Each structure stands twice: as structure tokens, then as C-alpha cells.
Amino acid sequence: MNKTLAGQLRWCLEALRDQDEAARDFFARKKEWDDLRRPPSKRTYAGGSFSAGAFGIILGVGVLSLRVPAIGALVGFQYPWWLLGSLILAVIGGVVFGKSGAAKKEAQVQAENQRLAQKHADEMKNRGDAVSAACQASRERLYHASKEAQRRGEQCGIHESYLKSGIVQTLLTYIETGRCDTLKEALNLFEQEQREEMRDAADAAHRRAMQQKADAIYEETLRSADAAEEAARSADAAGMLSAAALAAAASKKQSSDNDFRVV
């Protein structure tokens, strides 16, 4: 095992892990800051301005009032006009009560929006500076951690395209297990295994696709065989019926030929 190279890779891997941790902390802080700055969604009143309940009550009262003997005798022959008047009053009542109810609901929604806006303003006032400062601090930490990881990678001779904690850990494993002695050998082995993994994944995907096609063909073959068997059974049944019909017709004809009348 190349102990010098292994030590360099561990040194570089330490910086990369610090960078990963700083990145996770920064994204968490940034999400918290973004969520805090985002204003609350405004509520809207989606109801209508017509009260179906008031319409039904007024119309119902107008119709049921005809069952009162005194009112029934009063309207008499004016019965259709009474229903028409009840319907008009019901429509007017539905509009009036509906607009009144909608205005109250809209006022409640506006009050709720103002309450949420004030709550958001209070949270920004109480926590905004602290959350913003924490987000900025985590951003600076990530910047310095990235610079340090880049510096150590350059000193170890690792190209930036391989400067990831997972890749460097794999290279370190190659060196520690004695599979490679130099960084170049480790990188070549890594690329070779990456190509093999991609090839294996492509082969597996191809096998899955071919298996799906084979399953589809097999199912279609089964359906065709079932259809052919059903057609054959239908044909046999039709043949048997036809033969029976011919036999019955022949028997009837023979019986007709042998009939005679005695005088």
C-alpha cells in the first residue's frame, strides 16, 4: 500500500466531507430564510352572492301559505299569480341575503389576511435578523470549505471533475486494499468500473425490455390460442346442429313419402 498517497487522499477527503457538511447546513439555512421571507398566501372568498337558503324559505312559505284556509280563500282564482309573486319575492330575497352574507364573508377573509400579514411582519421583525445572519454565516462557511477542498485536491493532483467525497473515498479504498499503487492507476480503475457499471445497467435494462416483449408475445399467443379454441368449439357446435337439422329433415321427408290414405 502506498501510505503517502493514502495519507494525502485522507487529507483531501476530510476537506471534502467538511464541504459536504457545510453545503447541507447552508441549504437548510437558506430554506429557513426563504420560508421566513415568503409572504403568506392570501385567502379569497369563493362563495356566491346568492342565498339558496333564503330563496327556498321564502318560496316555501309562499307555497305553504296556500294551505291556510283564510289565505286560500282570499287568493281564490288568483292562485297562479300568487305563486309567481312568491317566486319573485324568493329571488329578491335570495339576492339580498346572498349579497349581505357574501359581504360578511369577504370582510372575514380580509380580516384573516390582515392577521396573517401582521403575524408574518412580527416574525420577520423578531427572527429576520438572526435567520439572515445565520444564512450568511453558513454561506461564508461553505465558500471557505469549498476553497479548502479545491486547494487540497490540487495539491493531491486530483482533477476537479473527480473532486467529490464519494469518488475520493473509492480511490482511497483502491490504495488501502492494494488494488492500485498510484493515483493514475486508481483513476483508471475507477473509470473502468464506472464503464462496467454503465454497461451492466444498460444490459439489465435491455434484458428487462426483451423480457417485457417476450411476456407480451406470450400473452398474445395465449389469447390467440384461446380465441382459436373457442372458434373451434363454436364450429363443432354449429356442425353438430347442422347435422341434427339435416337428419331431422331427412326423417320428416321419409315419413311424408310413406304416408298413404286407405278408402
Rank of each mutant, 00 (worst) to 15 (best):
R179A: 11
E21M: 02
Q194K: 14
E148G: 01
E106T: 11
E230S: 12
A102P: 00
L84Y: 06
T170H: 06
L64C: 10
L187V: 10
M1T: 05
G93C: 04
G85R: 14
A205D: 11
V109D: 01
A111I: 06
F260S: 15
D226H: 09
R37D: 03
D129Y: 08
R37T: 04
A201I: 04
E148Y: 07
Q108N: 15
R152I: 03
C135W: 04
G62H: 03
L172N: 03
G60V: 09
W82R: 04
F55K: 00
E176L: 11
A134F: 03
Q118I: 02
A202S: 12
R261G: 11
I175R: 00
G153Y: 04
L241R: 15
I58D: 00
F97Q: 05
G60I: 11
R10M: 12
E160V: 15
A134K: 11
A103L: 08
A232T: 12
A102E: 06
A245Y: 05
A247Q: 14
Q19A: 12
E176G: 02
M124Q: 05
G47R: 06
A46W: 09
K99S: 03
N2P: 02
T173E: 01
G178C: 05
H159C: 04
K3M: 06
D122H: 08
E32R: 15
M240K: 13
A46C: 06
L59A: 10
W82T: 05
Q114V: 10
S138G: 06
M240H: 15
A214D: 05
F260Y: 15
G239K: 06
Q150G: 03
A54K: 01
V263K: 10
A186F: 02
T177G: 06
V96C: 00
G178L: 01
K252Q: 09
V91K: 02
V75N: 03
D129S: 10
G53N: 07
K42C: 00
S51I: 03
V95G: 02
P69T: 05
G85C: 06
S138M: 03
E219K: 05
E185H: 07
Y162C: 00
A238S: 08
E185L: 08
D259F: 07
R127W: 09
I158H: 01
G93K: 01
W81R: 08
I57S: 03
G56P: 00
R67P: 01
A28E: 11
N113H: 08
I158Q: 02
V91Q: 05
F190L: 06
K184G: 13
A117F: 10
L83E: 00
R208L: 10
S234Q: 12
S65Q: 07
C156L: 07
V263L: 14
P39K: 04
Q19F: 10
S256G: 04
Q212G: 13
S165H: 10
I58L: 13
S255A: 14
I57P: 00
V68Y: 04
G166D: 13
E123T: 01
E32I: 09
F26M: 02
Q8C: 08
L66I: 10
K164I: 02
Y218I: 11
V109F: 06
L5E: 00
